[in-house]
Amino acid sequence: MTTVLLVDDQALVRSGFRLILSVEDDLEVVGEAGDGTEALAAARELRPDVVLMDVQMPVMDGIEATRQIVAEQLAKVLVLTTFDDDDYVFDALSAGASGFLLKNSDAEHLVEAVRTVAEGQALLSPQVTRRVVDRMVSRSADSPPPAGGPTVVDGAADARGTVGADAAGAPPSAPGLELLTPREREVLVLVGRGMSNAEIAAELFLGEATVKTHVSNVLSKLHLRDRVQAVVFVHRHGT
């Protein structure tokens, strides 16, 4: 049974989500909260598997609540957002969210999203990832890089954008990279561009199972929770 905490400042929205999730045999809504402060208290008390977290709330917003919940390892967080909230998505990534769900998603997608995050997988579509990557690259291009650090290359010719990299294709200054094989470094950079396993397999002429193994090794060696954190890692150390 996967336990879920619903966090939204609108009671009607919480009721709708509860109704959808309650009919699933493997999902149980164990609590609700109307703001980030209540969410943090409820997560500490209830220890749910997944917190379904709204972003814009009074008292404490969803980003700060996510940061504290993840820091205390209380639960995995699935953030509710709208497609145009790129800034919120980027901030939630940095806060440790395991995935994103559009508020206008249908019931099937909501249920699948909760299950996916509960299983420890990141839920971030390549389309959303690339929007975030483009925003990160754009921000970095507007600011001079630190002295001696790698530079960010404007992705005008590639909608995904790229980061400054060494010959192996990964930011040379990032900690832990010496543990990766050359192939794992290549895979890391492609994950950072928002590419799916299938796209990475096609790019590197590998099988999807092989790519999955490389991604798993990268996450383990760099102590990253999921590929969402890998996206942040690549672009944080590429600026």
Rank of each mutant, 00 (worst) to 15 (best):
Q68F: 02
T213N: 15
E72R: 09
V59F: 04
K221A: 13
L222K: 07
A202N: 11
E178P: 06
Q73D: 13
A201T: 03
Q121F: 15
A230G: 02
V189R: 10
V23F: 08
V133L: 09
G207R: 09
T210I: 09
A230V: 05
F90E: 15
R193S: 01
S125D: 13
R130H: 08
P172E: 06
V7P: 00
G31S: 08
Q10N: 15
V77K: 03
Y88W: 10
F83C: 11
V191D: 01
T3A: 04
I69N: 00
F100R: 05
S138Y: 10
V30A: 07
V133K: 02
S216N: 14
L80I: 05
E28R: 13
A43T: 03
M60K: 05
L78P: 00
A42E: 02
G169C: 09
A118W: 00
R47M: 10
G120C: 11
D84Q: 13
T66D: 04
L6E: 00
G169V: 12
T239H: 15
V114E: 00
F205W: 13
D35Y: 05
V29E: 03
L6R: 01
R131P: 03
V70T: 09
V77C: 08
L204G: 10
H109Y: 12
E64A: 15
L102H: 07
P171A: 14
L219M: 11
V70K: 07
V191W: 01
D49Q: 04
S138K: 12
L101Q: 03
L110C: 04
T213P: 08
I69Y: 03
A41R: 09
L19P: 02
R18G: 07
H237R: 02
R183Q: 11
R18Y: 06
D61E: 02
G16C: 10
T239N: 15
V79G: 01
L93Y: 06
A147D: 15
L5T: 00
A33Y: 04
G207A: 11
V23T: 11
H237C: 05
G62T: 04
D26A: 12
S216I: 09
G36Q: 03
V29I: 05
T213D: 15
T2N: 09
V23G: 07
P182Y: 12
A11R: 13
F90H: 13
V50S: 00
P146K: 11
V189G: 07
R225S: 14
D134H: 14
V59M: 02
Q56D: 06
D106W: 11
T81G: 08
D86C: 11
D134G: 15
G149K: 13
V153K: 07
V30M: 06
T2W: 07
R236T: 11
V152C: 06
H237S: 03
